[in-house]
Amino acid sequence: MNPLPTAWHKIAAVLLFLILWEVVPRTGLVDPLFIPPLSGVLDALIELYRSGDLLMHARLSLARAYVGLAAAVVIGLPLGLLLGGWFPRIQTATEPLMELFAQANPVILAHIIIFFLGIGEVAKTFIIGWLCIWPITFSTITGIRTVDSSLLKAARSLGLGRGQLFVRVILPSAAPSIFTGLRLAAGYAFIMLVASEMMGGSNGLGWLIVQSQENYNITRIFAGAAVLTAMAVVTDALLKLLERRLVVWDVDVNEDYLKLKTASGEGP
């Protein structure tokens, strides 16, 4: 029950996983052509790093994912706040429409998006941003809607004005839900990033993976996938850290998956 042993257990489990990754392909239990050993993937990573390709592609991909996510936040958060907080009737009127929009897979629309926006960065940002907006908007609306009404009453009885009420009570209460949506959106951003890079263009980790597939360079696929996974994991960890900083009162920060329940009710 002490925190230290569990931390060691976790480290040991990760090490064991890495060792298995190295040993199992080497012994031929799985075909190393399909799952190359860890050292092979590391070699590919180092080689990519030395040539400068890795940093170039990773930087571009990361920028795309973050720009898409940022665009989604800039649009989705105010949209959620406005609809959830001020215009409940408009929210009712637009709810099914937004649910349908959230179902609209930007990958399917890629061809159409390319008709309108070309194959460049705008199209990629749009594809990523489109999918990320909805979890943010929905979870913001949910967060605002589920603010404890007795809390509102208490705050109002203290003579808080509308603006004060919003900044001091509603926003902090909705914050955990908003963060759940944000983290969901961040996950989607990386999924869509790869999809958008696979659809067209000539750089980025998604492109690198497709290229490697065409050249049957499996270690490179794994290297690209590993870097992408690392970026997604680090982004998620950063958001979690930010959440812990901002939302100190929410005890169950660890039970992410239970909290997803509320946000994903309407999400794609």
Binding site: V194, Q213, G224, T229
Partner: peptide
């Protein structure tokens, strides 16, 4: 489960689209 949680979390973040080429090859 506690010990495996970091691995499960990382694996769950592995991008399905980056796996697609691997599965296709596989």
């Amino acid at each position: 489960a506690e010990a495996l949680s970091p691995i499960l979390r990382i694996l769950s973040q592995v991008n399905p689209f980056s796996l697609l080429p691997v599965f296709v090859l596989f």
